[in-house]
Design a protein around this nucleic acid. Structure first.
Length: 894
DNA sequence: GTCGGCTTTGAG
DNA sequence: CATCGCTCAAAGCCGAC
């Protein structure tokens, strides 16, 4: 807690009318900062910390933009841009000559300055400071070579990175990975400096510690034993085996690569408004094919004759992918192995293959390399590891058919046997449907727009073949358009029209599907073609673990939260972003679910709870975020043993530069904020606001008792509000169900009743969760008070009354100590922490006054001693994990 | 009616 | 021997003003 600013203000001693210091402090603030400052008081008030000035951002100067870079970009655009002149022909010429020619142009334009990097081939990973463009230029102009893709990483001599995510550290461990300063300094000193001095990896032991390797984490005695979630290696071990984690990471990497490539200026997005041909290309049962091509020798099976699946286990293991033989028996991806086996005749054996993520990635690299090398495509939009959409505009020398054959042939050979299928059409939706018809191992071209209206075509498809239509939407559609089995039925249904579609499944998706059914894309879908850069921009970062979560104590969970936090911060650093909103969602074992889940280490049936927290200011501080997460977990109040899943999201991402440029959060004065300002400061702030003509909203007449979701919500008020809210919630849902039921036939009423019952059941469970015997949430009384807020007020008054006197009474202190111990023992350390803050603040206030009075009261020393000798030991005694401890140390400056 | 937060949905 | 049920974004819903 930084009290120095506060001290500055208070030293002016407003009681004596000397307002100079305060006035100058306030008058130095920008409008936004002043408003923020005022609003803080309403926040602080709720937090029972009456005085704490906001942390103001230092007025950082933005680094001046490099003249060279600006002109470089301008030059590039100038030479390539005027799109009116740009023809298809020279676009491809530009693309073919590619970067090398651009580099030559660059040299010609600015002249080679030196040959410092003569023997260097340099690759830049992720976001760097200075930026990629600038580094690129400096490398080229100083005699080096620049690599755009790591696919050719065999040739790389150096990798430049500012932040290297843990995973990449391992991947790059054999390379010379340096900080960008190496380049900057080398140029400044006109010679190639030793890279070791700029190595991003400072210490290999350190690396090992930071990067829990899969092998290291495993219990080496038993090859297949899983790492338990209390093991610090659990997260990485788990992710190393999770197909869904791989899918997500691959996807985000592909998007990032696309953006990098695009921002380098290597290609342009297709022209909006012009017709296009979409090639939707997808591997056939990718995981299964790759698994088969690289299968262990011990497994002997025939891909064309035997049903084959890729999975981890035998019984309740998910099938990641199955070949087409298996599909003929009705086996589907995502099914459990057990049920797949049940679909086979007795004499047919199901073959299980292990995952091979490495080979999958290799095949995908080849896939994208081939597609990107094909000059007839304007863009290659990555959809996932095994799926891409290529866009062609204008006419080509080759027929679409020839192109399809060429793609399929080349990928098949380059991957030693992986087949892709291709769907071609002048719209995304038709390309997707064509792909379905093409599978497996084929291609299908829709040339004639008329086909969109031909009955036979639409008969081939189920509702969920349409993009954006899943389980839930299918259910709604089947319900509304009774009797419709395929898309043709739907189109022919007498109730089929735009209005009905909208009211059945919602405005957006309704309109989208209505358009799709005449073969057209909606605007939102085509954004991925024409505004790919915006669509691919990252808006959140999150982590989710819903498998293997079995904790005993809250401390174990705290440790796990630290690991998750570190993981997310690494990801945030990779994208050079700060977060100002954190969301935690937990999965808690449903009260009627067995303690041991059906699926080994699975989550089983769960109730979910979530909590959102505003951090007030964008940050990437591990202390702040980790503490917040632990606090949030306690607010969600799930007994550690009942936890089955955890998810953490960082929202409202901004870049550190943006933070300094844009307005601070809370740009308006909130209602009631001014009322919360302590009298001691009120007058000055009022004056300052008036001087600047900033509006102050009138006080709130009545405070709504319903639903507050602020971070400073206290557990017991939260609980109360939750319970208060229940009846209205149920009522609203019943109303809603009744409203829907008017639309639906009477036979559905039973289902609806069932739904209401289910929801009431969930609500009952939630009620039990907060009130039940297991709840870690029973209020702890202090001096007969239940509410933490009241207790805080009591404590504040107690301090104020005793601090300028002889200090508190011994007996009171004993009771107080007992209360704090109880709080900490019942996993409510965060509440004790708040009380500690109260004491700390009061002490600061008093000691400042005392300094002015030139006398010191015994009470101040007494309270100081209570804080240091009683409160902090109680806080620390409750085993804190490293990050929280650090936070505490910072808070108390001890 | 618009805004913003929270939940649901779908994708691979 | 189990088994690795992620992660992102859009749209809907609901309450506050």
């Amino acid at each position: 807690m930084d009290h120095s600013e506060l001290a500055d203000i208070l030293n002016s001693d407003s009681d004596h009318g000397n307002v100079n210091c305060e006035a100058s402090f306030l008058s130095n603030l920008s409008d936004d900062s002043l408003i923020d400052y005022v609003n803080r008081f309403s926040q602080e008030h709720d937090k029972e910390t009456p005085l704490e000035p906001p942390k103001l951002l230092p007025p950082k100067l933005l680094p001046p933009k490099q003249q060279v870079v600006v002109s470089h970009v301008a030059a590039k655009q100038g030479s390539a841009a005027p799109s009116a002149v740009m023809t298809r022909g020279n676009y491809f010429v530009n693309k073919r000559l590619g970067q090398e020619r651009q580099d030559e142009e660059l040299k010609a334009k600015y002249g080679v300055r030196s040959d410092i990097f003569k023997n260097c081939t340099i690759y830049i990973n992720g976001y760097t400071k200075p930026g990629r463009l600038q580094l690129h230029q400096e490398i080229i102009l100083n005699g080096g070579k620049f690599l755009h893709y790591m696919s050719a990483k065999g040739n790389v001599t150096h990798i430049v990175a500012s932040n290297l995510p843990l995973k990449k550290r391992l991947e790059f461990s054999k390379y010379k990975v340096v900080k960008p300063e190496w380049i900057v300094d080398s140029i400044a000193q006109r010679s190639l400096l030793p890279w070791q001095d700029y190595s991003i990896v400072t210490n290999t032991d350190d690396l090992q510690k930071q990067l829990p390797l899969v092998k290291a984490g495993r219990n080496s005695n038993h090859k297949n034993q899983i790492t338990e979630c209390t093991n610090p290696h659990f997260l990485y071990d788990y992710f190393a085996h999770s197909r869904l984690h791989h899918l997500s990471t691959w996807k985000s990497n592909l998007r990032a690569a696309f953006l990098n490539n695009y921002r380098e200026g290597n290609f342009q997005l297709p022209t909006k408004g012009e017709p296009f041909e979409a090639f939707h290309i997808d591997f056939d049962c990718f995981f299964a094919t790759v698994g088969f091509l690289h299968k262990p020798k011990s497994i002997v099976c025939d891909f064309e004759k035997d049903p084959i699946v890729v999975c981890h286990g035998s019984g309740n293991s998910d099938i990641a992918s199955c070949n087409y033989v298996a599909r003929r028996y009705g086996i589907k991806n995502g099914m459990w192995v057990k049920s797949a086996q049940a679909m086979l005749p007795r004499d047919i054996k199901l073959f299980s293959l292990p995952y091979n993520f490495e080979e999958i990635q290799k095949a995908s690299d080849i896939f994208y390399e081939i597609l990107q090398s094909m000059e007839w495509f304007k863009t290659v939009i990555p959809v996932s590891i095994d799926e891409a959409i290529c866009i062609m505009q204008g006419s080509e020398d080759f027929s679409i058919e020839t192109i399809c054959q060429e793609i399929r042939k080349r990928i098949f050979h380059a991957t030693d046997g992986c087949t892709v299928s291709i769907g071609c059409a002048p719209s995304l939706v038709l390309a997707r449907l064509a792909l379905k018809l093409a599978k497996p191992n084929g291609y299908h071209i829709i040339t004639d727009d008329e086909i969109a209206n031909r009955a036979k075509f639409w008969q081939n498809f189920n509702f969920d073949d349409l993009p954006g239509v899943g389980r839930s939407t299918v259910f709604k559609l089947k319900d509304y358009f009774e009797g419709s089995k395929n898309l043709q039925d739907l189109k022919k249904n007498p109730r089929f029209n735009l209005e009905n579609m909208k009211s059945c499944i919602g405005d957006k998706i309704g309109t989208k599907i209505f358009l799709n059914l005449i073969g057209k894309d909606d605007d939102e879908s085509t954004r991925i073609i024409f505004e790919t850069d915006k669509v691919f921009e990252r808006k959140s970062i999150s982590i989710e673990i819903n498998w293997g979560i079995r904790f005993q104590t809250i401390t174990e969970i705290d440790n796990f939260l630290d690991i998750c936090c570190t993981y997310l911060l690494g990801k945030m650093a990779e994208f050079d972003r700060l977060t100002s909103q954190v969301v935690m969602k937990i999965m808690k074992r449903a009260s009627d679910a067995p303690v041991i889940a059906v699926k080994y280490m699975g989550m089983g049936k769960c109730d979910s709870f979530s909590h959102t927290s505003r951090l007030g200011m964008p940050t990437n501080d591990p202390g702040i975020i980790a503490t917040e997460l632990k606090s949030m977990y306690r607010i969600l109040s799930c007994p550690p043993k009942e936890l089955r899943g955890l998810s953490i999201q960082f929202n409202k991402l901004i870049s550190p530069i943006e933070r300094n440029q844009t307005v601070l959060p809370f740009p308006k004065i909130k209602k009631g904020a001014v009322e919360n300002i302590p009298q001691i400061l009120r007058r000055e702030i009022d004056n300052e606001l008036q001087r600047r003509k900033i509006d102050v909203p009138s006080p709130i007449k009545k405070i709504s008792p319903i639903k507050r979701t602020r971070r400073d919500e206290l557990p017991n008020t939260f609980e109360q509000q939750f319970l208060d809210e229940l009846p209205t919630q149920i009522r609203a849902e019943v109303d809603n169900d009744l409203r829907i039921s008017k639309k639906i036939k009477k036979s559905k009423i039973e289902t609806i009743k069932k739904n209401i019952q289910d929801r009431q059941e969930i609500d009952k469970n939630k009620r039990l969760h907060f009130k039940g015997e297991d709840s870690i949430f029973k209020p702890i009384k202090f001096q007969g008070l239940n509410s933490f807020k009241d207790i805080c007020n009591l404590i504040i008054n107690w301090i104020i009354q005793t601090i300028n006197d002889a200090g508190p009474h011994k007996n009171d202190v004993r009771l107080f100590k007992r209360y704090l111990v109880k709080l900490c023992d019942s996993n409510r350390t965060h509440l004790a922490l708040r009380i500690a803050r109260i004491i700390s603040t009061q002490l600061t206030l008093s000691s400042n006054k005392a300094m002015d009075d030139k006398q010191s009261h015994i009470g101040v020393q007494e309270w100081d001693s209570i804080l240091i000798n009683i409160v902090i030991p109680i806080l620390n005694r409750n085993k804190h994990t490293d990050q929280t401890k650090r936070k505490l140390d910072i808070e108390y400056d001890i």
